[in-house]
Nucleic acid binder design. Structure first.
Length: 269
DNA sequence: ATGGTCGTTGCACGA
């Protein structure tokens, strides 16, 4: 269950989310991964590229359209798709001042309204960045309320920097008092669920401790010390169409990997 | 063992 199966069954769209931790640094791995996994839609985070520095031509040559919301050396989110990419929107569409950081981009792909999100890290519970994180999550829900309907096919996927519950943390005791596991962050995810979204991975794997991020330090990946913070959140109708989902741990191995592995989901269309 | 490694830029800081 570690590597996505080759496409061999009915009509579906293969969607993935991957925090690449610098698209420039990751291009060799990205190129290899596209050839191996053959995704139809990929939501990327932490491109760390200016808006115009996105390698759109590279993806065009592979048959993908793209939209990038970049800001330079930090953050940056993108969607690439070979099943259509319509009505792209950068950032929040809620009439308020734009988010100063590039953390959200949305487009319609294969009839699904898809958002690629990079939720703020939070740093420490008493840090301004943590308050920004909680405010950002509230604003995400308000943005969805204003722009989407939970009765349509909507997927919000990306690096949430939140482990939904203790099954999603290798050693919950070690993280008490840290970001990613605090009750207000988890409550923010539940607010998204109350609006109408489901954590697709957990729906398919109720008991599995499978992670999507491992620290680069101290051999964390090899020791299984990780967290599941890269999520595919889908409205009920979209979640019902998700027939297979897993984490591509292969992509975390080998030379110059991102610290995140892609989460891959096959969706009936 | 309160460490460890990457990425950015620039010789520190974010994750």
């Amino acid at each position: 269950m570690t590597r996505p199966p080759p496409i061999a069954y009915g009509s579906h769209v293969r969607l993935a989310t991957w925090n690449v931790n610098s698209l420039r640094a990751r291009m060799p791995r990205v190129e290899e991964w596209f050839a191996d996994v053959r995704p139809d839609v990929v939501c990327m985070q932490e491109t760390k590229l200016a808006e115009d520095a996105f390698p759109a031509d590279f993806f065009t040559a592979l048959g993908y359209e793209s939209v990038h919301h970049g800001q330079g050396q930090w953050n940056g989110v993108a969607i690439v798709s070979r099943v259509g990419l319509e009505n792209p929107v950068r950032g929040f569409a809620d009439g308020r001042d734009p988010d100063p950081e590039a953390r959200l981009v949305t487009a319609t792909c294969a009839g699904i309204r898809v958002s690629s999100v990079y939720v703020p890290n939070g740093r420490e519970l008493d840090h301004d960045h943590y308050r920004y994180k909680l405010a950002w999550m509230k604003r995400l829900v308000a943005h969805l309320e204003a722009n989407e309907s939970p009765s349509t096919d909507v997927i919000v996927t990306g690096d949430f920097n939140i482990a939904p519950d203790d099954r999603d943390v290798h050693d919950p005791a070690k993280y008490v008092g840290s970001t990613h596991v605090s009750e207000p962050e988890r409550e923010a995810l539940r607010e998204l669920e109350r609006w109408g979204m489901t954590d697709v991975f957990r729906r398919h794997h109720p008991d599995e401790k499978l992670f999507s991020w491992w620290d680069y330090r101290a051999g964390a990946f090899n020791q299984g010390h990780g967290m599941r913070i890269d999520l595919v959140m889908a409205t009920a109708s979209a979640a019902t169409k998700c027939r297979w989902i897993s984490v591509d741990r292969q992509a975390r191995k080998g030379d110059k990997p991102s610290d995140h592995a892609p989460v891959v989901v096959d969706i009936d269309v």
